Amino acid sequence: MPSLPPARPDLVIFDCDGVLIDSELIACRVLSDALGEVGIAIPAEEIAERYVGLTGDAIFADLKARTGRSIPEGFRERTRPRLEAAFETGLQPMPGILALLAALPVRACVASGSPPDRLHHSLAVAGLFDRFTPHIFSAAQVARGKPAPDLFLLAASRMGVAPEACWVVEDSRAGIEAAQAAGMTALGFAGGSHCRDGHPEKLRQAGAVLVFQRLQELADLLAVSR
């Protein structure tokens, strides 16, 4: 087993999309379709590869830089009902997350780049909202999203835990970099349906001290840490 800090963390900070819920491919497909309707052709797989972990503002800024096209006013508002409908018909909690949370020996919270309305809706659809509320934090609450450390530092502060006593579970390079910048232990999760060959190595290269593909592995780590 790869070496980890000897002390059990006081807090586990979970990303939401791609960690707690298997939502990334659903969201990428909805976004790909909506972008195509405004003249920006980009496959869902490319969106997943380029943009998982980033805020909407960061995604749209990069798309404008790459394509020369601005996102039309009202785009998010028009896309949101389609995403919510897709979540309501296809969203599932990540396999193993319910068992992990039931046995978790330390405190936990959520810190996500998603806006609060999407974050709360997706957690509710997956049956996880009541497990985490009110300890749910969104990038909308900070000046800079991932890969900046602001969101994770906010979560730790609100939970009353020092950054060095936190483990962060992330599926994206931006999230791993944010956890590192916050002075936290970054763990990579590569078990979502959007993760392709090579994804674990990308998380390691970003700075994850350990990458796992089953959430039971996190439970095992916590069981042996003291």
Rank of each mutant, 00 (worst) to 15 (best):
D22W: 08
F137L: 12
R78W: 00
R226C: 14
L153W: 01
A182T: 04
V211E: 06
V211P: 05
D117F: 12
E37D: 15
K146W: 04
D197L: 14
R214T: 10
H199G: 03
A165P: 01
D57H: 15
H121A: 12
F137T: 10
F137V: 12
E177G: 00
A27N: 13
A206V: 11
L203G: 08
P93S: 13
D150I: 05
E24V: 11
G188R: 09
L63E: 05
V19I: 10
A223I: 05
E46R: 15
S70Y: 03
P134M: 08
G56D: 12
V142K: 11
G160H: 08
R80N: 11
F87L: 13
L100K: 04
I97G: 01
V106F: 09
H199R: 03
L63N: 03
I71D: 06
R29P: 00
A181T: 07
G192P: 02
R226W: 11
P81Q: 11
M184G: 06
R158N: 10
V211F: 10
P93Q: 13
D171L: 04
E88H: 14
Q205T: 15
K146G: 02
L83W: 00
A186K: 06
A179R: 02
P105M: 09
L221E: 08
L91Q: 10
W167V: 00
L100I: 02
T89F: 07
D17C: 12
C195K: 07
T185F: 01
L4V: 07
F152S: 02
R80H: 12
G160Q: 09
G127M: 08
A139E: 01
H120T: 08
F132N: 01
T55A: 00
L63M: 04
A156M: 02
G96K: 07
Y51M: 00
Q180E: 13
R131C: 12
A58Y: 06
V211L: 11
R118F: 09
E37S: 15
L123T: 05
